[in-house]
Nucleic acid binder design. Structure first.
Lengths: 121, 121
DNA sequence: ATAAAGTATGAAGTATACTACACACTTTGT
DNA sequence: ACAAAGTGTGTAGTATACTTCATACTTTAT
């Protein structure tokens, strides 16, 4: 499929998709048989990748980090020890983040309660 | 205390503290009695604020959002309905974020397991 | 006394993640 | 046939959050 379909199905703008492609997060290939243009074709896998990117971004992985992860996910590359370490690190970072979020949530809930009390006077 | 003490006690650089001050997140005041200089004095509260900023940043509040929250926390300002809504919104955003983090964590754990399998061949 | 270290301010530079624009070419609809 | 819409490439601009630099004055240590 062409880039606009990826954009429509993922909700990510064409400009952003091209930006991701430049960074190496996704890749489309121009059909060798078609010589009239150099339009790139993206396959279903790209949709999945973009969804992963969206998810990972929401929890604040940088695009550089996401790129690394996707390379491991989809790479035919060899499995290195460093890759396992990357994932181990990321998993514990996520645990820390969840803890902090819960802390902040409590804080916010307390302030909210105070605000609600205040608005009843 | 002077800015360098805030920096030392919070681990946030002087440059960043000044940046926060420009954005209105913290504030120091020049002592009226001292006319030889315009050094600003920061009190204990600033330490707490900086710690809150650090915590909130870790869970990806923008400085603009953090500023709003600090204003409500420490503001003598009136309690508006909008403030309660801000906190309600933020709390549900945090819940969403926690859910996503758990999703991603599972994903990463699965990939890690696969990597570990691979490294045993 | 004087050099080193600290402080204030303003402006410019960096990194990340986009967004917008210009230009050229291709495909599609009527 | 031809205008509208889509595609590729490259460059520039925007926003956020800093960091660095330059300048000038103040305090502190020796």
């Amino acid at each position: 499929m062409l880039i606009n379909e990826i954009a429509k199905r993922t909700g990510v703008s064409i400009a952003t998709l091209r930006y991701y492609e430049n960074l190496g997060l996704i890749r489309g290939v121009a059909d060798e048989n078609v010589k009239t243009n150099n339009y790139k074709n993206y396959d279903e896998e790209v949709i999945v990748k973009v969804e992963i990117i969206k998810e990972a971004k929401e929890v604040d992985f940088t695009l550089a980090e996401i790129r690394k992860m996707l390379e491991i996910w989809y790479g035919s590359a060899s499995r290195h020890k460093g890759q396992i370490e990357l994932f181990t690190t990321k998993i514990s970072e996520i645990d820390t983040k969840i803890k902090r979020l819960k802390q902040i949530k409590k804080r916010l809930e307390n302030v909210k309660i105070e605000l609600e009390k205040g608005s009843c006077t």
